[in-house]
Nucleic acid binder design. Structure first.
Length: 1308
RNA sequence: AGGGCUAUAGCUCAGUUGGUUAGAGCGCUACACUGAUAAUGUAGAGGUCUCCAGUUCAAAUCUGGAUAGCCCUACCA
């Protein structure tokens, strides 16, 4: 029997199928059953579990999931290793918030170790929620063995990559990993650099009022500036505006826009009245001068006047003309002066970033204190200004120190803080206090170097911790020389298939073209430490690429006496599980025994007993109370069958031999040992596990949830057994976060304790920086496998990825770092196809945000509508890369339209199949040529769909694929095939035609389900399982395609051109259109469909037309309830034709005369058209040009059949004979009666197969019908008797508007 | 500020290499059908294809510009 259902409830289907998947390990099977050498590689971009999953994650993961599933179905092995992104600033910030500390407190109020432990636990805070959404949404990813970026193995791989970069050199010998500096946001108050993330935190940009100054830079008269001067005596100045006057002593250049037009103005210095000529952007003249003052005599001006008389001396000066002009230094610092600076500095340079929106169109440039300034002056070869640095003459020390004070060498202002906010309140509250910016401005005024000083309101970034303004300041950083690989990155990028393509060429491509070096440094605690050790002077350094290498170096250092002992001595490459335990219980015994233990553990894992397997299936995956168990896990010098490390619970399963006395003693000794380590030990027999699993699980759960029992109390636990002590710092008490002493952890602070020895015997300390967390995630192709230290083969088979997908916001994040590292280290792409999905907005198109309250809870959505409808909606509604306006009405629509229709279709199939006792028999499939036209048609449509589906999916166009399925299900399968076939299913016995109908419908449902399986995995599996359940055993026995337990284990139906019959599809298309036209005429003429009509007339379109329509004639006739079709040709003389220009062919031929031709053709008479059709050409004269028209140049159609009721669609025309005869009338009434009787059957809830007796009230209106169609009516309504009576007990039923008759129906 | 994406019916979206009646679904209105029935069909109303200019015989489509929304990047002095 096929299962039948009352209603569609997708969430129940989800639950049923999810349980099935988990019970039967369908995901694992779907991977394992595919050949290992035929892989399709997918990389999971790791989410961070310290935030809750949102609906946009469902979207992103649907994209990931479905292409993996699709390729699995195609026969590829698709491993999906999950991952967790665990480092980074957001996590640090959250931890600091929760601990109530700031960065300064780290190392004081809490130890760095504690701090990092807090990070470690915070990072997985919502892991349960994530695991839950993963399961509920049907995302298949291996969460049992994820890569985790904070694990030592992961970090070690990152180190290896960094070392590769360190050793890699450009052709000119520069390393790809180097130390340099950039201009970065820096908080002198906090003494730390800030990331752009920190700067973008709310409230960081504040409206502040600063002193802005327009300074006058005096131009030197020489060859390049000569053209600007009127005479040798002229005082010519360039005006430049700044909101940070404190940077003026560091000025070395003025930047102009090369294409901006500048003007020279003759005027007076506003503060001194001295005559002066100034240069500024022409567009900015009006900002400083009033047009009314133009050409006013200069003598009019007195110092103190607000308005300046002026005269325009020159315009049309391009910025490019000014480049190279030298000027006198504005505020000289003698100590900073060098010959080189005098020669190359203090000149005009050009920069694209200059605008004329405010200021003067000239940008004062101080390279140490502005990123644009830095770039522009570097490009122009301007040296830096600062106090000479004996070690590096090219990089003098800035004139402002790290506290934000001018260095002593700066005249007048040395020792002053550059920003008022850096002074204490006591200082600034003094009435005499003047901010440095103001003092500088006043001095400029006095020296006749200021043109305008005013207060200026603007947004300025502040340090989020100290609330004081940020400076842009040169900071040391480690960089990856990405710019050196930029061409290669561009080149390889062109081989990547981006969805959408514009992201690859646009956002990503252009980013690559303008690539800057990658600033790796982060001065933080929780992240991958930079593995570089340096001597204090930076002259000797080493980049470490593995733990082993570090250990060797440490040993050297210990020998050399720069370190006391090696805290990492017990450290070796370990697999994750072992690592985890050894963190806490480090084995310090004989390494040979350790190796034996490890081997023993592996062997055990390979040959588990039946009972062990059963228990493992029951407790794995946190099934018991959410606790994680491991199997065959080394604890101290034993291997535990199962262990929950967090709760210190060991579970052992004993075989029969445990009854032996010696074994019992051994077991006891072992238990004592484990108890001493603080473990509880639960022991079950094989029999208990296999027969009383519920009790066993209950016991485990009870112990897990019980308060610490006697075994975990007492001295045995708190004092660490001597054999397990770890390092010299063993006195450190265990932190509350359940972590043993450091020394095994590559994070700070432990790593900072490592001091290495340089070749010359000096100590080298680690560069304190961590690396950008983006480097972590970009390293995942290698680090997830701990490459190259392990899994070299695995890595080889899994690089590069065939496919990745992530939000479009990752373009310059993960997509970039993956690409950059792959190109630089492996000269390869990291991924071949990438789908970047857009945002999920609310239904109004606003961004979702918790603060706005418009965020959608994915758990609620899935619980209400089911995962499949949600997934389908997201994929079908818009392309994944477009933003999605998320509206649950859309999910409802999908549910009703697609899933509802399919559900109904399946139920329909199941209902009748069960009645007929039909079961799909794979061995007795009727050949297609034995099936009806309609069957073959829907099969053809189905395989057309299969072809279209594969084409779309292979191009990662899931939306197209979904829409094609929707169209097939709704339009073709349900609305045409099922509708027209209904009668075949319920009429008569299970004959060949009926079998064909069942088999056809079965195949359609089966294949459609497969195609849907990628996007709607639950429903598709539900459908597949329902369809195949009755024959599963047979299929398995015969090893046929339907033997698989799950659709996800089956082989996807491939395109098969032999099953597609385009001619047949065309015929059916005619049928559908003819029916539609005929029905529309009926509707217009108010002729109900039950009333039969005599015939329709079809003008013949072409030679094949008659044969084509004849093939589907029966369908048409029954669908529109007409007796016959008559074909008419020209010869009948009945047709009135019309012609329309075919613009496509004619346009090219006629050009300008096209419009006139269209008018002419529209007016063609029947004769004109006939002439053209018969002779094949027609000459026309248009605007004096003669053209020859052929039949292809126009579209000819039947416009009308005079005297008939006509409708047309394109070239196709249908005329309906509406003549009524008593015979037809009677048949119509008979059908009406059948309908009314059927309704009564249904109202009375009779069984479909019940035989009945029908009594009809005698009425003139039905006499003819009953007489002529007596047998027909009886047959249709399964009546054994049909009698007429004068009076009927049953109710009166309306036959039409005027007639009602009594009808009584009773079961025999 | 720079780069990118988007703009078509009340809503969500299609719209091929430019070709003359701009489509679909939902919603709305009317009707029909009924052994899929809390299902289904047919029809109708509903459009300045965001705006401006250009190329062309012909533009929703190509080009340029503008406007709006969103994303990424960025110290506008």
């Amino acid at each position: 029997m096929y299962r039948e259902f009352k209603h569609l409830h997708l969430p129940s289907i989800d639950a049923e199928i999810r349980q099935f998947w988990e019970d039967e390990r369908i995901f694992e099977q779907s991977v394992e059953q595919r050949p290992a050498d035929k892989s399709y590689v997918f990389y999971e971009g790791p989410p961070s579990a310290n935030g809750k999953p949102g609906i946009h994650h469902v979207m992103a993961r649907t994209v990931k999931d479905l292409f993996c599933r699709y390729n699995t179905l195609k026969g590829y092995r698709v491993e999906r290793k999950g991952g967790w992104d665990t480092h980074g600033l957001p996590i640090e910030l959250q931890v600091e918030k929760e601990l109530g500390i700031t960065k300064e407190d780290i190392g004081k109020k809490v130890t760095v170790d504690e701090y990092n432990q807090a990070c470690r636990s915070t990072v997985m805070r919502y892991k349960d929620l994530w695991d839950d959404i993963t399961r509920r949404m049907g995302y298949w990813v291996d969460l049992d063995n994820p890569y985790i970026t904070f694990e030592n193995n992961y970090i070690e791989s990152c180190w290896w990559i960094l070392q590769q970069l360190y050793n890699k050199k450009t052709p000119s010998g520069e390393s790809y990993l180097y130390k340099g500096f950039t201009i970065q946001p820096y908080s002198p108050a906090a003494g730390t650099g800030l990331s752009s993330h920190e700067l973008n935190m709310p409230g960081c940009y504040k409206e502040v009022t600063d002193f802005s100054t327009v300074a006058m830079f005096k131009v030197r008269l020489n060859e390049s500036s000569g053209f600007l001067f009127e005479d040798n005596e002229e005082d010519l100045r360039i005006l430049a505006w700044t909101t940070t006057p404190w940077t003026l002593p560091s000025n070395v250049a003025l930047t102009v826009g090369p294409n901006i037009e500048y003007a020279k103005i003759q005027t007076l210095s506003p503060y001194t009245g001295a005559p002066v000529s100034v240069v500024l952007a022409k567009d900015r003249v009006s900002a400083y001068f009033n047009a009314e003052d133009e050409n006013r005599p200069l003598d009019d001006f007195k110092v103190g006047d607000k308005r300046l008389p002026y005269k325009v001396l020159k315009t049309g000066i391009k910025g490019a003309d000014l480049v190279g002009i030298q000027y006198e230094q504005l505020l000289p610092t003698p100590a900073a002066s060098t010959p080189e600076l005098e020669e190359k500095g203090f000149r005009v340079i050009s920069g694209d970033f200059v605008t004329t929106e405010d200021g003067t169109g000239v940008v004062h440039t101080a390279p140490y204190f502005g990123a644009d300034d830095f770039r522009a002056s570097k490009a122009a070869g301007i040296p830096f200004i600062g106090i000479p640095n004996p070690k590096n003459p090219d990089l003098p020390f800035p004139l402002v120190d790290k506290q934000g004070k001018f260095v002593q060498e700066v005249p007048e202002f040395g020792g002053r803080y550059v920003k008022a906010e850096y002074y204490s309140k006591e200082v600034t509250s003094d009435k005499e206090f003047k901010p440095t910016d103001l003092l500088i401005s006043l001095q400029l005024k006095e020296d006749n170097k200021a043109f305008k000083i005013e207060k200026y309101k603007h947004n300025y970034p502040h340090c989020w911790r100290t609330d004081k303004p940020v400076l842009y300041y040169p900071l040391d950083s480690w960089f990856i020389r990405a710019s050196a690989a930029k061409e290669r990155m561009s080149e390889l990028n062109k081989t990547i298939n981006w969805k959408p393509a514009s992201t690859g060429t646009g956002r990503f491509g252009q980013w690559l073209d303008n690539l800057q070096d990658w600033n790796l440094s982060r001065s933080r605690y929780w992240g991958v430490p930079l593995p570089i050790w340096r001597t204090e002077d930076g002259e000797e350094e080493i980049c470490i690429g593995s733990v082993e290498e570090m250990n060797q170096e440490i040993d050297k250092a210990v020998k050399a006496g720069v370190m006391e002992l090696n805290p990492y001595s017990a450290f070796a490459a370990q697999d994750d599980d072992e690592m985890d335990t050894r963190h806490k219980y480090v084995y310090t015994g004989d390494m040979a025994i350790w190796d034996i233990l490890k081997r023993f553990s592996r062997d055990n894992r390979e040959e588990p007993t039946e009972a062990e397997n059963m228990l493992w299936q029951a407790i794995r995956n946190r099934q018991v109370g959410g606790y994680k168990f491991r199997r065959q896990h080394p604890i101290g010098s034993f291997i535990a069958d199962f262990v929950c490390i967090s709760e210190k619970l060991v579970v052992e399963v004993d075989g029969g031999y445990h009854n032996a006395k010696e074994q019992r003693e051994l077991d006891e000794a072992r238990a004592t040992y484990l108890n001493n380590l603080g473990f509880k030990v639960l022991r079950f027999t094989n029999e208990a596990v296999m027969e009383k699993m519920e009790w066993v699980l209950g016991e485990i759960a009870r112990v897990l949830s019980s308060p610490p029992g006697p075994l975990s109390k007492g001295e045995g636990v708190t004092s660490r057994p001597a054999s397990l002590s770890v390092d010299a710092k063993g006195t450190r008490s265990p932190s509350p976060l359940e972590r043993g002493p450091g020394g095994e952890d590559l994070h700070r602070p432990f790593i900072d304790e490592v001091v290495l020895v340089s070749p010359s015997g000096r100590p080298m300390r680690r560069e304190l920086d961590l690396i950008d967390v983006w480097f972590d995630s970009g390293s995942m192709p290698y680090a997830q496998w701990h490459y190259p230290f392990e899994n070299q083969e695995v890595f080889k088979n899994n690089f590069p990825a065939n496919f990745i997908a992530e939000g479009v916001d990752q373009t310059r994040g993960w997509f970039y770092t993956l690409h950059a590292i792959a190109v630089m280290v492996f000269d390869s792409v990291a991924f071949k196809n990438v789908v970047s999905n857009g945002l999920v907005l609310d239904k109004e198109g606003n961004k979702m945000a918790k603060s706005k309250g418009n965020a959608v809870d994915p758990f609620e959505t899935i619980a209400e509508f089911g995962a499949d409808a949600t997934r389908w909606y997201m994929m079908a509604n818009a392309n994944p890369w477009d933003n999605l306006k998320f509206d649950t009405n859309g999910i409802l629509e999908v549910r009703n339209k697609l899933f509802g229709t399919l559900f109904n279709t399946y139920n329909f199939f199941a209902l009748y199949a069960n009645l007929d006792g039909f079961k799909m028999d794979e061995s007795k499939v009727l050949p297609y040529d034995k099936r009806t036209e309609l069957d073959r048609w829907v099969i053809s449509k189905l395989y057309s769909l299969v072809a279209e589906y594969h084409e779309a999916m292979n191009d990662y166009e899931v939306t197209r694929a979904c829409r094609a399925i929707e169209e097939f299900v709704d339009l073709h399968l349900s609305n045409w095939f099922v509708r027209l076939s209904r009668r075949r299913f319920w009429k008569g016995e299970l004959n060949e035609d009926k079998t064909a109908a069942y088999q056809t419908l079965f195949e359609c449902l089966m294949v459609t389900g497969q195609l849907m399986a990628s996007v709607a995995p639950f429903f598709a599996d539900w459908l597949y399982r329902n369809l195949t359940a009755p024959i599963k055993d047979t299929a398995k026995a015969n090893n046929t395609p339907l033997r698989h337990d799950s659709v996800h284990l089956s082989d996807l139906t491939l395109p098969d051109p032999s099953k597609v019959d385009k001619d047949l599809e065309k015929r059916m298309d005619y049928a559908q259109r003819i029916c539609s036209l005929a029905l529309s005429i009926r509707k217009k003429e108010k002729l109900r469909v039950r009333l039969p009509l005599q015939k329709i007339l079809l003008p013949v379109l072409d030679e094949a037309f008659i044969a084509e329509v004849d093939g589907v004639k029966d369908l048409i006739l029954s669908e529109i309830n007409v007796k016959e079709i008559e074909f008419i040709t020209d010869a009948s003389g009945l047709l009135k034709k019309g012609a329309k220009a075919n613009f496509k062919t004619l346009g090219a031929k006629l050009g300008k005369d096209m419009k006139d031709a269209a008018a002419l053709i529209a007016n063609f008479s029947n004769d004109d058209i006939n002439t053209l059709e018969q002779s094949g050409w027609l000459k026309v004269l248009l605007n004096g040009n003669e053209y020859t028209l052929t039949p292809e140049d126009m579209i000819i159609s039947t416009e009308d059949l005079p005297g008939w009721k006509v409708a047309s669609d394109g070239a196709l025309t249908v005329a309906l004979d509406v003549t009524m005869t008593p015979e037809l009338q009677a048949e119509g009434t008979a059908r009406d009666l059948v309908n009314r009787i059927q309704n009564i059957r249904k109202e009375k809830d009779f069984n479909v197969t019940d035989r009945v007796t029908v009594t009809l009230e005698k009425h003139d209106a039905i006499l003819a019908a009953v007489e002529k169609f007596h047998d027909y009516i009886k047959a249709e309504v399964l009546a054994t008797d049909l009698v007429l009576a004068d009076a009927v007990e049953g109710e009166k039923v309306e036959l039409d508007d005027v007639v009602s008759v009594g009808i009584e129906v009773s079961v025999n």
